[in-house]
Design a protein around this nucleic acid. Structure first.
Length: 733
RNA sequence: GGUCGCGUAGCGCAGUUGGUUAGCGCACCGCAUUCACAUUGCGGGGGUCACUGGUUCGAAUCCAGUCGCGACCACCA
């Protein structure tokens, strides 16, 4: 059948995917005679659609997989999706709000099941998109992070960490968001610049400057810099302060932390609600007085302000201080950075018992593996980012006050812990909360368990860590694991650690390819947990791609309205062009703007290749090549072809994908088509062998980059040879 | 504040350990047009490689500083 004049991607993409699937090309076997090559696909969130970053990620990983497969290795690329705890829950709760409901309308169990249903639909969508990209993943090994085997591994790891003394429950200063009802890890918090009034408040004969006057009820000292001559003599003394509810006394402490240049050089110390004050409090043995409740309201220590929200209280406190003449002055234009959560709410530094993993012993081998070059990071300069992060890491809070996630396997005996604070939905549908001991007078433990929403265990609670429920009188912790705690074990979970054949054959994986922005959040955690459990880093190489920004060069965001939907580009230009354009868009792993021009260019390139084949195919079909001979033109193009094979190989070995793409583009278009094809027009049949060889090798080399058009052309020209993906990678001499 | 990076043609970028006339895509200008492809071909214009100084026979490339930009991390009551 004659080839059409132009290549139309829409006619081929779906059909080619089916041919790969039917041939079972990407289903990996544990073939010990072959060298394994493994990539774990960074699991996209199951809560949304694929974005341009995912496209780039899939494109690069598919290049590696197809390249190694053609080189004869046993390749395995495992797909999966992530439950993305906080993010998914926020998305789902937004949906609930539209129906006039919230997570407090459900007990824990029912809520979890509702989110599960919500996620299933999106998960199917994302999986369909990965498939449409032509990704050579092994769907038979597909996993979701909340499947039983994964949950079981994650819980066992937690138990093991605890047995090794690496888990503790501690009072800790956390970033607590009263609106989200959850704590956030430091790395999840954003700091934004904002202008707020800075109040200068009279503290006896001293004046302190603060943006948070409402926390004054929790002050347990004032601090000055020991080198500050103005206040040196005050250190160690006690000052009497006229407050809103009478006089009180405060110690004056000296601490290097205080910046003499800020405000008056005197700082009020509130250990319960400020991370630095917390540190100072520990150092100077100060009492910790809680002013703000977990619901964001002031506690009884605030006297008449108790029960008010932070902002209301601040306003009233300031008004009352003014009325009493206790405000010295107000700087209305004080610009400072404020910690905000993912949803943009102000974060309340709060003391809350949480589960922590000690980092000290875990980070050491993970740092050394990179420093000693056993794990290589590309581009090389990102190595520094990793090393700096690992050197400065502190203990990791792994508990989240989220429902959507893996529930922490910790148990509190109802008999031993009368002070547990419990919320549950009663059999009549009302929400009841209070101290467990009191609730048990009116309700049965069974009813509480059944309707359980949240429990909060005070610091002194007795607990048991166990994957299995220890006894019937126990309530399970309602916190879940930080998503990064489970995804930090993803390479192990997905390979069936510790017993499976897959794990024994395919671990450690060869390349971990992901965006550099999760180097610290994800890559470092996989390193630590992977080494901790197996003694070996989970991957040998890390390739970090840049972030794809919008056409205007800015970060894509819904609010800017500049988000690019990859599917539109797939429709218009084809998967090959989109993939190749993105891969060629940046050579250094830097962030880059969505390279629309290149995508257009590679669509034309696909057509160019198609027409090169249209030129060559009739020559080969005539099969009169017995009288073929070579002249200097043939020798020239064959020589150039050798160079291309070498260059593409060496570029790929160095993870220089854009370079390899440009080499192929340049050769096929400007040497093979523009020069060589023009020259042989008068002696086509004589050159048929050279033409055949050139096309054959070009298709093989280009296949990992543009799998669809190459496979389509291959079928037109070399049908008898089977699928192109099953051919061997060209070796340079 | 700490760290990493960036500044090369109108725009978007490449330039590997310093080495002949600094490249690529898009855009622009001129010419060609049934012959594989107009999703085309041939030709062309356009750059003090941010600035200053240094190392060198030789610097876009190495070093120091200045200016401008970005990101990450940390954080100031």
């Amino acid at each position: 059948m004659q080839m059409q004049k132009n290549y139309d991607h829409k006619l081929y993409e779906e059909e080619i995917i089916k041919r790969w699937e039917e041939a079972g090309i990407f289903k990996a076997r544990n073939d010990t005679a072959k060298k394994p090559f493994t990539i774990v696909l960074p699991p996209p969130n199951a809560s949304g659609k694929m974005h341009t970053g995912n496209v780039l990620m899939i494109a690069i990983e598919d290049i590696l997989i197809r390249w190694h497969k053609m080189k004869g290795e046993e390749t395995l690329w495992i797909p999966g999706t992530d439950h993305a705890g906080t993010e998914t829950q926020i998305t789902f709760e937004r949906e609930l709000k539209k129906q006039g409901k919230s997570r407090f309308s459900y007990n824990r169990q029912d809520f979890y099941e509702e989110v599960w249903k919500f996620v299933q639909a999106n998960k199917t969508l994302v999986e369909g998109q990965i498939r449409r990209m032509g990704a050579g993943v092994d769907w038979s090994r597909n996993k979701f992070t909340l499947e039983p085997e994964v949950v079981s591994l994650v819980c066992k790891t937690f138990e093991k960490l605890y047995q090794d003394g690496l888990v503790y429950r501690g009072d800790y200063m956390v970033n607590y968001c009263p609106k989200c009802g959850t704590t956030y890890a430091d790395i999840e918090i954003n700091h934004i610049e904002r202008v707020d009034p800075l109040y200068y408040i009279k503290y006896g004969s001293l004046v302190v400057a603060t943006v948070r006057p409402e926390t004054k009820f929790g002050d347990t000292a004032v601090a000055v810099n020991p080198a500050d001559t103005r206040y040196k003599d005050w250190i160690g003394s006690e000052i009497e302060v006229e407050g809103l509810s009478g006089k009180f006394k405060l110690k004056v402490i000296g601490d290097e932390f205080v910046d003499p240049k800020f405000g008056t050089g005197v700082v009020k110390v509130t250990p319960a609600h400020d991370p630095n004050d917390y540190e100072m409090g520990k150092k100077h043995n100060l009492a910790t007085v809680k002013v703000i409740e977990l619901n964001g309201k002031l506690t009884e220590v605030a006297g008449k302000y108790a029960g008010l929200s932070v902002f209301t209280a601040r306003k009233q406190v300031v008004d009352d201080l003014k009325a009493k003449g206790l405000i010295d002055k107000v700087d209305e234009h004080y610009s400072h950075s404020v910690a905000v959560c993912k949803a943009g709410h102000d974060v309340e530094p709060t003391i809350l018992p949480n589960w922590f993993v000690k980092m000290d012993s875990l980070r050491k081998p993970a740092l050394e593996a990179v420093k000693e070059g056993r794990v290589k990071i590309y581009p090389k300069w990102r190595t520094l980012t990793y090393i700096r992060w690992m050197e400065n890491i502190h203990d990791w809070a792994i508990s989240r006050q989220n429902i959507w996630g893996i529930r922490i396997p910790v148990w509190y005996s109802s008999k031993e812990n009368p002070n547990l604070i419990v919320s549950f939905i009663n059999t009549d549908g009302t929400v009841v909360n209070g101290r467990l001991a009191e609730l048990l007078r009116n309700y049965t433990l069974e009813d509480i368990k059944k309707g359980l929403q949240v429990l909060m265990a005070p610091a002194e609670s007795k607990y048991k860590i166990s994957v299995e429920k220890p006894s019937e009188d126990c309530l399970q912790e309602t916190d879940t694991f930080d998503t990064w705690f489970s995804s930090g074990q993803w390479p192990l979970a997905i390979l069936g650690y510790p017993e499976s054949e897959d794990f024994k054959y395919f671990y450690p994986t060869n390349v971990l390819e992901t965006g550099w922005e999760i180097l610290s959040k994800w890559v470092s955690r996989m390193m630590m947990l992977g080494i901790y459990l197996t003694g070996e880093p989970p991957f040998k190489n890390v390739y970090l791609h840049g972030i794809v920004r919008a056409l205007d060069g800015r970060k894509m965001s819904k609010s800017l309205g500049n988000v690019i939907n990859p599917e539109e580009y797939i429709d218009e230009f084809g998967v090959d062009a989109l993939r190749m354009g993105l891969v060629a868009g940046t050579a250094t792993g830097k962030d880059f703007s969505f390279p629309r021009d290149r995508i257009v260019g590679y669509k034309k390139f696909a057509n160019k290749l198609w027409n090169v084949a249209r030129f060559i195919e009739p020559v080969l079909a005539a099969k009169q090549s017995s009288d073929s001979s070579t002249n200097e033109d043939d020798q020239w193009i064959l020589h150039e072809l050798e160079l291309v094979i070498e260059k593409v190989d060496s570029s790929l070995e160095k993870y220089r994908f854009a370079e390899a793409a440009e080499i192929l583009y340049e050769f096929i278009w400007h040497k093979l088509a523009d020069v060589y094809l023009e020259k042989v027009k008068d002696r086509r049949e004589e050159a048929s062998q050279t033409l055949s060889k050139a096309l054959d090798i070009c298709l093989r080399l280009l296949h990992p980059f543009m799998p669809f058009v190459t496979e389509a052309v291959w079928k037109e020209v070399f049908l008898d040879e089977g699928l192109l993906i099953s051919q061997e990678w060209p070796e340079s001499k």
